[in-house]
């Protein structure tokens, strides 16, 4: 569906410009690598070609009249998405510091209990079952070591 006349900022334009920017960064970084020749391509050869093609396609996507106007995008789920993203980032930071069981316990209590506001009893049951059960499954059944935190938990 072509966007309404006068709307410049469509989804495709935003994405296209971001792709051009990424391509530009790659080109700049490639300058530090030896380029080589056509018959002996160096480490910088493939990235440079890919970046140039990416820039060209980014421009093409930008120039086409495509995508819905950005203003029409709805961000109703963004708050949830941000919280889940935060929980994931916490997992990456905490996993090797406080161990698998405490990390998953915290994430599950946060997401189910705080974000989704479910009653405490089922929250506790699911959180304990997944974190300790998951550890048991990996370590005791499959012999795959998962990180442990202080006091061996």
């Amino acid at each position: 569906m072509p966007p309404a006349a006068g709307v410049w900022w469509t989804g495709d334009r935003v994405a296209g410009l971001i792709l051009v920017a990424i391509a530009a960064i790659v080109v700049v970084e490639t300058m530090a690598l030896p380029l080589g020749t056509l018959s002996r391509p160096g480490p910088g050869y493939a990235p440079l070609i890919c970046a140039v093609v990416l820039a060209a396609l980014g421009i093409l996507v930008t120039l086409r009249r495509g995508g819905a106007p950005v203003a029409n995008l709805r961000w109703g789920e963004a708050r949830h998405a941000l919280l889940i993203f935060g929980a994931g980032a916490f997992a990456a930071l905490a996993l090797e510091r406080i161990g698998f069981r405490l990390t998953t316990l915290a994430i599950l209590v946060f997401l189910i209990g705080v974000v989704e506001r479910k009653p405490p009893l089922p929250v506790a049951a699911v959180a304990v079952a997944i974190s300790f059960g998951g550890y048991y499954l990996f370590w005791n059944v499959l012999r795959v070591p998962l990180p442990t935190g202080p006091f061996g938990i």
Partner: peptide
């Protein structure tokens, strides 16, 4: 879904981590 998706997130984290014992892989996924 309110119960399902947090568990999926947890299993995604641990599944991706377990392959190479790599937190960087977890970051890449997120």
């Amino acid at each position: 879904y309110a119960y399902l998706y947090p568990c999926i997130v947890v299993f995604c984290v641990i599944g991706v981590y377990a392959v190479n014992s790599s937190v960087v892989d977890v970051w890449i996924m997120i």
